[in-house]
Amino acid sequence: MLPSPFPVPPFANECKTYAKNSFGASFQHPFVLALADGSLDPKLFRFYQIQDAKYLESFSDACAILSTKVTDPEDKLWLIDAARMALVVEGQLHIGYGKTLGYDAKTIAETEPTPNNLAYQNHMVSAAMKGTVLEGFSAIAPCPWLYIELGQHLLREKGSIPEDHPYASWLKMYSDPGFNDYMTHLLARLEKYANLSDQATRQRAKIVFQQSCNYEWMFWEQAWTLQNWPSR
């Protein structure tokens, strides 16, 4: 369990502790280690980036669905902004690498999600649509949380990111302290809805959080193995 670069309220800490093995596993995945040291095969990174763009469409959907279930206008606006940010801000990273690695919006649109990716997407959207608001927030929280902690952890480990690092843009994006504010607001809302929930709902939310952490590891794995459907 690494020190967090942003405040972690009590329920968020319970979730992370509950899912600590799943959460921590991503830090040691060979894809992540190769990405950090720059040795990752560009073919694998291209595969990952395209699948990530597909994933972010469903992350945006989950945020948008949650925005229809909350009644607090500030929470509604935050979720709408989060849905937009997933497509616009992170999309800029995909556009930049797309020029280098040879893919564009049409490539992304025509690419089928891998089994692991589709399962993760369905998990998030299902939690947002069928679960409580708390379960919806628990499903979306691990992705930005893990990426931000991972990015800043890698920056601490490396000290600085060389300009000639092949994945410098990715590392710089997720090590940017500006993301800490995003997580502070997300976890504050997770805490708010946890405080409004009974113990059974809180327990279900922790399970949902852990499942998302498992899917995060599986997302690295699908890129590392160039996962495809069995019939292909």
Rank of each mutant, 00 (worst) to 15 (best):
A128D: 04
C15D: 09
Q199R: 11
E157M: 14
A12W: 04
Y182E: 04
D198V: 01
A19Q: 08
Y120E: 08
L150Y: 11
L79I: 00
C15P: 03
C213H: 07
A119M: 08
L150A: 15
F6P: 01
G159Q: 11
I161W: 12
Y97A: 04
I50H: 04
D81Q: 14
P73G: 10
A127G: 06
P3E: 14
F23H: 13
T17V: 11
L101A: 08
F179H: 15
R84W: 12
F47Y: 15
T68S: 15
I161Y: 12
V89K: 14
Y103T: 00
K16I: 15
S169Y: 06
L66G: 00
M124F: 11
P9L: 13
E216R: 07
G24L: 12
E191N: 09
E216Q: 13
D37I: 03
A34P: 00
L196I: 02
A200C: 01
N122S: 10
L190S: 03
P10E: 14
D52C: 05
W224M: 06
F47K: 05
S58Q: 13
G151Y: 11
T114I: 01
A223P: 01
T184H: 09
A53W: 03
R46C: 07
Y193N: 03
I50R: 02
N117A: 14
H123C: 08
G38H: 09
K16D: 10
K76Y: 07
N122G: 06
W220H: 03
Y120M: 10
P166M: 08
N195F: 01
L87N: 07
V89G: 01
L79Q: 04
G102W: 11
D72C: 08
P113G: 06
L77S: 08
D104K: 02
L146G: 04
N116L: 06
E149T: 09
R232H: 13
S39L: 07
A19R: 07
M85V: 02
N180H: 13
V208R: 10
N117D: 08
M1S: 14
T71I: 01
E157T: 12
W229S: 03
A12S: 15
Q199M: 11
L44D: 11
A188T: 01
D37M: 07
A12K: 06
L35K: 05
T107Y: 04
T100R: 14
V8H: 12
S58W: 13
A12C: 10
